[in-house]
Design a binder for these strands. Structure first.
Lengths: 249, 249
DNA sequence: TCCTCATTCCCATTTGTCGGGAATCCATTT
DNA sequence: AAATGGATTCCCGACAAATGGGAATGAGGA
């Protein structure tokens, strides 16, 4: 039994990198101090290290991910079986539904978009590859939470709802229901006017049989009215199809 | 045993990440052991850490960059003043020359492509964003080496030519000449049939006034014949224009 | 069945890291 | 010009944490 909570040693470097990644724009040292909670001298040491390796770049006192990030992203794309296996199915669903389809995963306490096939409508919901939002609300987040490993879920919820036992309880029961029905729905839960449905992809990674990826369909609420079942159905079917690809490969 | 001296603590994590980044495809533990020179137990500890944070992903015993890479890449794009400042100029040069233009930087011991504007010809030279090659040969590499800080150059050359004093001496004098003329040229030096010219971009980052980025024009050797001066000229002009943008900001 | 490779554990040792605080720089502001 | 505030670097003793050797286990492959 490992006590995993204390931010120790090497973890501090990753803490800084992760902070830069999720912040979305260049951060000052002050920002980083606040976000990471590191001591000043420690922070500077980590920054220097990361800079030396090309993991962060500096612009006049502001820090952002460095050039090696591009290389990493390239490596991710090339090697992601999941994205590979999903692309075709996602395109089919996009064509059939005429709405936007996303492939999302849970990373730490965020839901991140790995791949996106946009709707052709001029009014469309979208999301960039690599963009992330808190793993807290919305169809994607709920679907991911519902079907992730119990321990991992507890860890996330402990963190995101530590000051809100009521909200915590509410989401727990909602997740229970989502597990029962096999998908999650949201309406204007994160962004007003956006309706979404998300279903889990199961891939047996190693021993665990959990899920940490989902397929999400997003549509303007106005276009979703009356077509909820069609959308839900298609999303479920797509997620299942991808799950099967992941088994056999 | 590690050839380098400075591999300490937190650096080991980055060592693993960097190895995955530059390898280009998923690596087995055995590969990583060989490349990083770490002890088995240490390596596994680093991998576990990186996995926990989403920096690496695993597929049946093979490791590759994880999803957070996409987020990092996004952050890099958004915040790279250099790329921002270069894009327009690069497009102009591409239009004028009808050849491919790349923006490259030196990262550790590699030359990495940050941005690329492709030629319209069906026979074209190209290079993906994020792709990297050894900082050893070719117009881009030589231009970067020639104009980088003395200490950094020494560090790279010490490393890449440690078994080849003759090659080391040869490139030193070549770099000398490149510094004098302000640009580097190559012909079939890395890839057969590819001609290239590369000129440095100067940006005063902090106190140092060195350069670590270059603009490179690449063309099939056959199309370069007789147009060398035109290409060299255009590349120099473009690099200078970008340098100026970087000053005034 | 034997051998290779992946993965996990244990533990004594030592090595590197942490962070408080102060000193520098630098660019503005007053 | 002096002062103010942020960024950045340096120093150093105490402490905790990481290292890696080795062995054990599991899974395939040949």
């Amino acid at each position: 039994m490992n006590a995993e909570q204390g931010v120790t040693g090497a973890e501090r470097v990753l803490l800084v990198l992760a902070a830069l990644a999720s912040h979305g724009k260049a951060m000052s040292v002050k920002d980083l101090l606040a976000v990471t909670g590191l001591a000043q001298s420690t922070l500077y040491r980590q920054i220097a290290l990361l800079k030396r390796w090309g993991f962060v770049a500096e612009n006049a006192g502001h820090y952002a991910p460095g050039p090696i990030s591009l290389q990493l992203a390239l490596g991710f794309d090339v090697n992601s079986l999941l994205v590979e296996a999903s692309r075709t199915e996602m395109q089919q669903l996009a064509r059939a539904s005429q709405e936007s389809i996303g492939l999302v995963v849970a990373v730490k306490h965020q839901v991140m978009c790995l791949e996106m096939v946009d709707s052709q409508h001029s009014l469309r919901c979208s999301f960039e590859k690599g963009r992330a939002v808190p793993l807290k609300a919305g169809a994607s987040a709920k679907s991911l939470l519902a079907f992730m490993a119990d321990k991992a879920r507890a860890e996330v919820l402990d963190n995101l709802f530590d000051n809100d036992p009521a909200g915590r309880a509410a989401i727990e029961t909602e997740l229970e229901q989502i597990r029962a029905q096999g998908y999650a729905v949201s309406d204007s839960e994160v962004d007003p006017g956006v309706w979404g449905v998300s279903a889990p992809i199961f891939h047996r990674s190693g021993r665990g049989a959990g899920s940490s990826a989902s397929i999400t369909l997003m549509a303007p609420s106005t276009r979703a009215i009356g077509r909820e079942n069609q959308f839900i159905d298609g999303t479920l079917r797509t997620a299942r199809a991808i799950s099967e690809h992941m088994q056999t490969d």
